[in-house]
């Protein structure tokens, strides 16, 4: 199978062509540097994304924001985002707190990136 990708690692945006056989990226063309190869390998076999989103606490109107501790598989992104809505931890929430461990068995934790209640500054 042939896949076409745009390398996102620099503004050149090389158009990459990847021949995928089973679970392996065989032939990669179109890249101007080796970062393109690494990207094509990952992106054509198992694309990964960082998830950032808002969550609500059980006892506060305002949201707090979260990030996944590492990139998770792209095809799990929306499912994980919907999973966040099923959780409503109690305040106080501190930046850096793990709010969900190993979300949907992806091996990623969900970490708070803001405080709730917001500190006065």
């Amino acid at each position: 199978m042939e896949k076409e990708l745009v390398c996102i690692n620099c503004p050149l945006g090389c158009r990459l062509k990847v021949r995928v056989e089973g679970e392996e990226a065989k032939e990669i063309t179109g890249n101007l540097c080796k970062r393109g190869i690494e990207y094509a390998k990952q992106e054509s076999i198992l694309p990964m994304r960082v998830l950032t989103a808002n969550m609500k606490a059980a006892d506060c109107e305002r949201p707090f924001s979260v990030v996944s501790s590492k990139p998770l598989p792209k095809n799990m992104l929306i499912e994980c985002a919907m999973e966040l809505k099923k959780h409503s931890p109690k305040t106080p929430i501190k930046m850096g707190d793990v709010v969900i461990e190993n979300i949907l068995n992806t091996g990623c934790d969900i970490i708070a990136t803001s405080n709730l209640p917001e500190e006065s500054l």
Partner: peptide, 13 residues
């Protein structure tokens, strides 16, 4: 926009 954002914010979805 950055290629990264075109891919990860529009194309992905």
């Amino acid at each position: 926009g950055l290629a990264r954002n075109i891919v990860q914010c529009a194309e992905d979805f």
